[in-house]
């Protein structure tokens, strides 16, 4: 099956500045996105600090830039030299500047027509897209009076107005207030669940974490890791895995763990004990046995290292195995 995005040995440099270096990456299946009601889209998060090369990679994928070396294929075609695959693409750039003098409806319908939606359908499509982004009450207002959150929503509406198979969102939550952030995340999830494939970039980890567990970590222009967040975490075996057990007798847990050779550190917190282990599976087995045997009352069992932030820290600090 043909991937939606196929980046092969792709490098981009601006003069002496390296944007991307030898990136190889495939995403999605073109066949799947052509599905009907039963199809489900998926979301992948492009993660990386500012200047890592996320936007550079996105621009090459959407055809705004051509790689200095290597190839980029969008729906099997070169997006830079061939406008056809861009018809199936919705792109929300990082910046929120637009034609501010236009109303939201005018802008989105204009961009719909640019994407090939016939003029007599563009207005209706724009209204639908703005409604999906929670902007139906503001469609007649000029964009210059919009807040940052409203601009982001308008930008997202313009990206989905022609109902693309693939959405590429470059930092879509930048500058958005927390309530709007939750709402936009929910709407992006709905789009993905409705069958649209989504590539979203961010340097804010919890934004990605709220959207997806599939990530690509870009660091200094290269793909540092990709795949499911938990799978990636399991691959990081150099770093001890922390498990926090909150229970009525944390010292009993600590005593049981102390004899295990995979435990590297035990720390106490208020009503909790934090274990560091080189073998999480063995540690969970041990914990299960101890809890049952000692009849412990466990109120929480969490893994502080199993979140995106910890994985990202490990990867970018050179701790990856």
């Amino acid at each position: 099956m043909k991937p939606i995005i196929e980046v092969t040995d792709c490098s981009k440099w601006y003069g002496q500045v390296l944007g991307c270096a030898s990136i190889n990456w495939k995403f999605g299946s073109d066949e799947r996105t052509r599905g009907t009601a039963a199809s489900t889209g998926n979301i992948v998060g492009l993660l990386g600090p500012n200047g890592a090369g996320k936007s550079t990679l996105m621009k090459m994928i959407v055809g705004l830039s051509t790689p200095s070396r290597g190839t980029v294929r969008l729906f099997g075609e070169d997006p830079f030299h061939n406008p056809a695959p861009r018809q199936r693409l919705g792109y929300a750039p990082e910046h929120e500047k637009t034609y501010d003098e236009l109303t939201a409806l005018e802008l989105v319908s204009f961009l719909a027509r640019l994407s090939g939606v016939p003029t007599n359908q563009a207005i209706a499509a724009a209204k639908t897209a703005l409604d999906r982004m929670g902007m139906s009450e503001h469609i007649g207002r000029p964009i210059k009076g919009f807040s940052k959150g409203m601009r982001q929503r308008t930008k997202l509406a313009s990206a989905i107005v022609h109902q693309p198979d693939l959405l590429i969102l470059d930092e879509p939550l930048t500058g958005v207030d927390p309530m709007a952030r939750i709402d936009i995340i929910d709407r992006i999830k709905r789009l993905a669940a409705d069958g649209t494939s989504v590539v979203i970039s961010s340097h804010v980890l919890y934004e990605i974490e709220a959207l997806t567990t599939d990530i690509v970590v870009i660091y200094r222009g290269q793909v540092l890791a990709e795949g499911n967040i938990y799978d990636i975490r399991r691959l990081i075996d150099k770093h001890p895995h922390r498990i926090r057990v909150e229970c009525d007798r944390p010292r009993v847990v600590a005593a049981a763990a102390a004899s295990a050779d995979h435990i590297t550190r035990i720390a106490f917190e208020r009503d909790a004990v934090v274990l560091e282990t080189r073998n999480p599976d063995a540690c969970y087995d041990l914990l299960g046995q101890t809890i049952v045997r000692e009849q412990l009352h466990v109120t929480a069992l969490t893994s502080p290292d199993n979140n995106l932030s910890a994985v990202f820290d490990y990867l970018t600090s050179g701790g990856a195995a």
């Binding site: 009601a37 998926n42 979301i43 999830k189 789009l191 409705d194 069958g195 709220a210 997806t212 979140n307």
Partner: peptide, 23 residues
Amino acid sequence: ITPTAPAPTRSTAAIYDLGYKRY
């Protein structure tokens, strides 16, 4: 283990069937 981490999006597809269709 991770009460704050969301489940993979694929498994929640059925929740959000709003009839979105390809153009």
